[in-house]
Design a binder for these strands. Sequence first.
DNA 1: ACCTGAACACCGTTCAAGT
DNA 2: ACCTGAACACCGTTCAAGT
Lengths: 189, 189
Amino acid sequence: MSSSRRDQLIAAAADLLDEGGPDAVQLRKVGSASGVSHNAPYKHFSSKEDLLAALAARELNAVCDAAERKARAGSPLAKTIMLAYVRWALMYPERFRLVSGRWTKGASEDIAQAAQRWQKLLYVAVEAAQKADELPQGDPERISSLILSVAHGAANLALSGHLSAKGKGKAEPSDLVADLFSYLAHPGG
Amino acid sequence: MSSSRRDQLIAAAADLLDEGGPDAVQLRKVGSASGVSHNAPYKHFSSKEDLLAALAARELNAVCDAAERKARAGSPLAKTIMLAYVRWALMYPERFRLVSGRWTKGASEDIAQAAQRWQKLLYVAVEAAQKADELPQGDPERISSLILSVAHGAANLALSGHLSAKGKGKAEPSDLVADLFSYLAHPGG
DNA sequence: ACCTGAACACCGTTCAAGT
DNA sequence: ACCTGAACACCGTTCAAGT
C-alpha cells in the first residue's frame, strides 16, 4: 500500500507547496520533480485537489504522530502539544494553511479522519490536565475547542501579519497559547 | 474618487466570491456582470489580486463601520464586537477567508490599514472593559490579540467543519468567544 | 481616460496509444 | 497497472486599436 511512487509525488508536492503555496503545486512540476511525465500523477490521484488532500492528511497525521510520541515519552501535556502545534504552523505556513483550508465535502475522507484523530488527542490531554487541576472543570471537548481555536487563530494572525510584532504588545502565537493556559489555570488573571 | 464603475466591479466580485470562492471570481464574469468587456477591469485594477485586495479592504472596513456604529449607540463592549465579528464570518465565509488570507507583502496598503483600524477598535474596547473590571488587567494589546485569536480560530474551525457540531461538546464559535470572556471575567472557571 | 476584440501563455485535464 | 506525448479547455493577462 501507498506505493513509493505515490509517496514520491506527495513529497514533491510538499516541496512545491512550501515554496509557493497551492498555486505553485503544478502537476507538470510534480511530475518532473519525480522523474515522470506531466500527467503521470493522474494515475495515482484523480485530480490536483485529490493530491493536495492526500498531502494534507499526511501532514496532519505527522503532527499527530509527533504528539503521540511526546505523550509516550511522558509529557502528555495539553499545553506542550499545542505549543508544538503552533511551532509547526509557523515553520510550515503553507502546510498549516492547506490543512486548515476549505475542503469540498467528501473530497477527502482521510483528512476528516486525521482531523478527528488530532481532536481526540487534544481531548485526552485536556482530560488529564483537568484531573491534575491544571485546567478548569467543564466539558473537555468544549475546552479543547477553545484551546484549539486560540492556537489556530494566533497562528493565522501571525502568518497574515496581523499580530503586533513590535512594542510592548508584542506577542508570538506561543505567547498567546501560554496566556490562555495561564488564565485557565489561575483564576484571577 | 472610487468611481461608480470601480465599485460596481468590486460588488460583482463580491457576489462571485460568495458563490464559489476566489477561483470563481473570473475577470470575464466580473466584466460581464458589470456590463463591460472581459478585460475592462484592468482599467481599474492592475490584476485579479488587486481587485480581490480592494474587495477585502472594503469588507474589513465595513466590519469596522458596523462596530463603530454600535459603539456610538452606547455599547462599546469588546464581547459584543467580537460576537458580531464571528457572526459576520459565518455569514460570509468567503469574505472572511479572503480578508484573513495571505497577502503578498505590499499587495495592498489598504488592507493593512483596515486591519490596523480593526485592531485599534478592539484595543479601545478592551481598555474600556478593563476599566469596568470585566477583563483582567495586563497589556490591552496582548489581551486583544488573545480575544481576536479565539474569534478567528473558532470561525475557521467551524467553517472547515472541525468543530464538533453535535453531542454535548457542541460549540458554536460564538459560544467559544463567550467562554473566553467568561473565563477572563470570573477567575475560577 | 475608458473601452473593445483578438491573441498569447499557462496549466488542469483528457485521450489515444504504448509496455 | 503504469506511463507517455499530443491535444483541448479555460482563464489571467497583454496588445493594438477605437472613442
